[in-house]
């Protein structure tokens, strides 16, 4: 009866190992392509505006999920973002100590959505709600259109 066996180490259980090798090649999508291109080429964030409800979304997207119409109007965000919330991370996703790393959810005035990214600050205590921040970008020649083209956000 397995329930009565006193196995304290999982590896003591009779087992074998196997793996399912899966690798994914994603497309950015119609709107995602535009967003990535703007980030790569000009180091700016592209947003989309709904012609019906007038909501502006970041990142740019193909359709307004509320009005369910295609969004054709895009604009780049010129203003700094602001800190909506923040945290300090002390372990990475495999559980190993790394950090402290300060992470923020950055939003933009009048825009729906946001970007989670690292904050380039000396210490946790120097971050505050509403603090204006701007991205620190890689050199244009090194950018690929990925979110990692941004090294971190820093106080504006």
């Amino acid at each position: 009866m397995p329930i009565l066996e006193k196995i304290t180490q999982p590896l003591q259980a009779r087992h074998w190992t196997d793996s399912i090798p899966l690798e994914f090649h994603y497309t950015a999508g119609v709107a995602g392509e535009s967003f990535r291109r703007e980030l790569k080429e000009n180091g700016r964030f592209l947003s989309s505006k709904c012609a019906e409800c007038k909501t502006t979304y970041i990142p740019a997207r193909m359709f307004c999920p509320s009005c369910f119409i295609e969004m054709k109007e895009t604009r780049t965000l010129e203003e700094p973002g602001y800190i909506y919330s923040y945290t300090t991370v002390n372990r990475n996703r495999t559980g190993e100590p790394n950090g402290p790393l300060t992470i923020g959810l950055i939003r933009f005035e009048g825009v729906k959505g946001g970007i989670v990214h690292k904050l380039d600050v000396k210490e946790h205590g120097s971050v505050s709600f509403g603090m204006k921040v701007v991205p620190i970008l890689k050199e244009a020649s090194e950018r690929t259109g990925a979110l990692t083209d941004i090294l971190a956000f820093r106080p504006a």
Binding site: T27, G29, V30, E33, M62, F63, F68, I69
Partner: peptide, 26 residues
């Protein structure tokens, strides 16, 4: 075989066409 559209975007295109064909909105 490979579309540029994301799963969300593919879903939108089919859903919107179905709504339009029925004369409905979301």
């Amino acid at each position: 075989r490979r579309m540029l559209e994301t799963p969300k975007e593919l879903s939108f295109e089919a859903s919107k066409m179905a709504l339009d064909s029925a004369g409905l909105t979301l």
